[in-house]
Write a protein that binds this DNA or RNA. Sequence first.
DNA 1: GCCCAGGAGTGTG
DNA 2: CACACTCATGGG
Length: 286
Amino acid sequence: MRFDLEIDPLDLGQTLGCGQTFRWRAAPDGTWAGPLGDQFVVLRKAGRRLIVEAKPGGRHVRKLVRKHLRADDDIDEVHRVLGTDKVLADGISQLKGLRIVKIDEWECLASFVLATYANIPRITKMIETLSTRYGTRIAGGVRAFPTHSQLARATSHELMKCGLGYRAQYVKTLCETIDEHQLEHLRTLPYEKLRKELVELPGVGDKVADCVSLFGFGRLEAFPIDVWIERALARLYGRKGNYSKLRAFAAKRFGPYAGYAQEYLFYNERLHAPNGSCLFSKEERK
DNA sequence: GCCCAGGAGTGTG
DNA sequence: CACACTCATGGG
């Protein structure tokens, strides 16, 4: 099936290729393709419109795409609020098309547990391998990220063979600790309570809890701090300190849209990096 | 080969 | 509380 809808501003590369989500792939013709729920979706921007092609299709695809791209976010409002920060204002004018993405809670949780101390190309590969081996086939060779029960069937030894390294045990224990019912409960919590419960999970520390709060549970006030954000805060604001200190600074400075501020900072800090941005693996880049 | 990665867990002072 | 150390590994 094929249809179009209005989501604007939206830059697919800035949004789907900036390390929030790991399963979208850019084609040379400018389209972006990836699994979304039970669909294989191809996206293309045409002016203010977004052209969507989906297999196998269905009534719910429009809602799926709108939710994933957070179509109801008021980007003008975000920029109006964050633009009052003169340090941030310089860097964000070219990033109006970057939207925070809304990922399935379980997929997001597992993905960012995998993301600990690995670079983005490697994270992408780990997730790809898990999907290939344990996920449900959607269309062609594309498979969905494995559900909790699908992934729970894997032994830690099998997970090791997927190239997860020491993260295999995190994932294994995570599967044994959490269930769908608990995920349902977490959805009801406000950000502070949510992150508090998330850090109790195995393999989930401050940073992963904030990534999952932001991308998985859609709490826009979350501000994940990784090595790149640490550098950005030091370089642009002269701020250093431990996680809770930096987090408090971000909350005060960026308020309810700290998540967007974080993504703008992350994007620019990576462009600022010496060896290019490393957003994609070599294979994907050519 | 070397360096580093969207860190977390654990132990110690 | 703050550090220090370890964890397993592949992409650049």
